[in-house]
Design a binder for these strands. Structure first.
Length: 205
DNA sequence: ACACGGATACTA
DNA sequence: AGTATCCGTGTC
């Protein structure tokens, strides 16, 4: 049986994720976020693709080469949004993981849209549902997330929320996309057979 | 295949 | 100041 978000969006989800969810290692968090529903100001979708970045010995993690990123980890609680501009073009959304065996981030790479679809279609300038959130830059544009969201605490305020998965979804792990360092690590997690997973530059699935 | 575009952290 | 790099997308 196929596992599409649309079959689950009308079922109940419990209250939003707590801080303890992000007080684990980045790989556990990245895998567990697949199937959860991300909400931001009336728009949102089920997370269908994530990547883990570890602050411990991961050359692809910002903390490896960016002092500002290490300061961010030190001065914010787990669950804080880490948003940055990549290639001068696209905002990318991460969440801080902290206080467990190792700190790090989870990059949100793709959503299966569930809420605010007309608004996301306008922001993305396309009606194609598969073009709305099928990539880390696409989903931030669709949701209207930019640098002003950097540092927002997921566990405070009501505009940014993640609701837990309603069941244990089938998750496939693959190498991370688009990085030059530590590219072999299988730290990308996707919802099996979901059509909204990003294609990526190398069409990896 | 390539253009687009800016923050960050280097070198000096 | 100048340079290298970077967790991508759209159009060529």
């Amino acid at each position: 049986m196929k596992h599409h978000a649309a079959s689950r969006i009308h079922s109940c989800r419990a209250t939003a994720l707590d801080r303890g969810f992000f007080t684990r290692d980045p790989l556990t968090c990245a895998r567990a976020l697949v199937g959860c529903e991300l909400l931001w100001r009336g728009c949102g979708g089920v997370i269908v693709e994530t990547e883990a970045y570890s602050a411990r010995n991961d050359e692809a993690c910002h903390t490896f080469s960016r002092p500002s990123s290490r300061r961010f980890v030190a001065s914010h609680p787990p669950g804080t949004a880490y948003v940055y501009l990549n290639y001068g073009v696209h905002w990318l959304l991460n969440f801080l993981v902290k206080g467990g065996p190792e700190d790090g981030f989870v990059l949100i790479r793709a959503l299966d849209p569930t809420r605010g679809i007309p608004l996301m279609q306008r922001r993305r300038n396309t009606a194609n549902p598969k073009q709305l959130c099928s990539g880390p830059g696409k989903l931030t544009q669709a949701l209207g997330i930019d640098g002003s969201c950097h540092g927002l605490d997921l566990l405070r305020g009501e505009s940014l929320k993640i609701l837990p998965a309603t069941d244990l979804p089938p998750v496939v792990e693959t190498p991370r996309v688009g990085i030059s360092k530590a590219a072999h690590l299988p730290w990308r997690f996707i919802l099996k057979d979901n059509p909204h997973v990003s294609a990526g530059p190398f069409f990896r699935k």
